[in-house]
C-alpha cells in the first residue's frame, strides 16, 4: 500500500514538473516575443528594400533561444486576430536570441514576408497585436497613442522592458537603449573602486552557502549517529553497544587483521600451466559483468 502511495506521489511530482517544464519551454518559444517599437508616421526616415517609406513595427525576442514566428499573426484589430499570418517557410522568420525583426505596416503584403496587409492611421491611435499560431493566444499587444509626431517612434525604453516612451532617434532593428558600456561593471567602478563591497558581498554569500551546508549536514550527521545507535541496539540487543566510540585506529587495526587473515586463506584451485594462448570471446558489450541488467550493488 505504502509502495503504491510512493509511486503515486512520484508520478504526481513528475507530472507537475512536466507541466511546469512545458510552460518554461513555451516561454522560450513564440511567447517570448515582444512588440518593441513602432513608427506610425515615416516622412523622412528608414526606407524598405523597395526604397519606400512607411510605418513599421519591430518585434524583439527576449529569450536566449532562436524563436520561429512563422505561423503567428499580426493584427491591428483585436476582433480579427488572424489578419496577417506570418508566412511559413521563410528562414528569416527565425529570430536569434535577443534580436529584432521589423515588419512594414504598408498594406503591401505582396512585397514579401515582412510587409503587413494593413497600414497605420496617422491621425488615430493604433492598436498592434501579436497572436500565437493558434490565432487565439495573445502574445503581446500595444496601443500607440494618437497624435504621433512624424519620424518619432514609440517604443519600450529598454528592449523587452515594460515602460513605453517616444524616441526622437528611431532604432529600427537595433536596441532601443544603446549601451556602449557594461552597466554592472560601470556600477562597480563608480561605487566599489577598491573592491571592498564585492569582497564583503561575495564572501558573505560563500559563507552563507557553506554555513547552510554545515547546518544541514550537522543535522544529518546527528540523525545518522542516532539511527546507527538504534540499529546496533536492535541488532545486539544490548543498549551499551556504541560503535561510534571505537576509534579509527582500532577500526584500522581490526580491518588490517581481517585483511591479513583473508589473504592467507586460499581455496585450492585446479589450474593448468600452459604456454598456449587462452582464447576468450570476451567483449565489454556482451559481458554480463558490465551488463546494464546488472543487479545494482548496494
Amino acid at each position: 500500500m505504502n509502495r503504491i502511495r510512493i509511486i503515486t506521489g512520484i508520478a504526481a511530482c513528475l507530472a507537475l514538473m512536466l507541466v511546469q517544464s512545458a510552460q518554461k519551454v513555451q516561454a522560450q518559444r513564440t511567447t517570448s516575443m515582444r512588440i518593441n517599437e513602432a513608427l506610425v508616421i515615416n516622412e523622412d526616415n528608414y526606407v524598405d528594400d523597395y526604397g519606400r517609406r512607411g510605418g513599421w513595427v519591430e518585434l524583439y525576442n527576449t529569450s536566449a533561444n532562436v524563436v520561429n514566428i512563422a505561423g503567428c499573426f499580426l493584427t491591428d484589430d483585436i476582433n480579427e486576430p488572424k489578419k496577417y499570418p506570418i508566412p511559413k517557410g521563410d528562414v528569416l522568420t527565425k529570430i536569434s536570441p535577443r534580436q529584432h525583426i521589423l515588419f512594414w505596416a504598408d498594406s503591401m503584403a505582396w512585397h514579401g514576408t515582412f510587409h503587413l496587409n494593413f497600414r497605420f492611421q496617422p491621425d488615430k491611435s493604433n492598436f498592434i497585436a501579436l497572436f500565437d499560431s493558434d490565432g487565439k493566444t495573445l502574445i503581446d499587444s500595444v496601443t500607440v497613442p494618437a497624435g504621433q509626431i512624424p519620424d518619432v517612434s514609440y517604443g519600450l525604453e529598454v528592449d523587452g522592458g515594460l515602460k513605453w516612451t517616444s524616441f526622437a532617434k528611431v532604432t529600427p532593428s537595433t536596441n532601443n537603449l544603446t549601451l556602449d558600456k557594461n552597466e554592472k561593471i560601470e556600477n562597480f567602478k563608480q561605487n566599489d573602486a577598491k573592491g571592498i563591497g564585492m569582497t564583503l558581498t561575495a564572501m558573505g554569500v560563500v559563507f552563507l552557502g557553506l554555513i547552510l551546508l554545515y547546518l544541514i549536514f550537522k543535522f544529518v550527521a546527528n540523525m545518522a549517529i542516532h539511527l546507527t545507535k538504534l540499529r546496533s541496539k536492535r541488532a545486539a540487543g544490548d543498549a551499551s553497544t556504541d560503535s561510534g566510540d571505537i576509534s579509527g585506529e582500532v577500526l584500522a587495526a581490526i580491518s588490517t587483521a581481517l585483511y591479513e587473515l583473508n589473504e592467507d586463506v586460499h581455496d585450492i584451485e585446479r589450474t593448468v600451466l600452459t604456454i598456449q594462448k587462452v582464447r576468450r570471446t570476451y567483449s565489454p558489450w556482451s559481458s554480463k559483468i558490465y551488463s546494464l541488467r546488472e543487479i545494482p550493488r548496494k
Binding site: I211, L213, F217, K218
Partner: peptide
C-alpha cells in the same frame, strides 16, 4: 571527511 566533520566547510569558505 567533510560530511563527518561539517564545520570544516567553513575553512573552505
Amino acid at each position: 571527511a567533510l560530511i563527518s566533520n561539517p564545520k570544516l566547510m567553513l575553512i573552505g569558505a
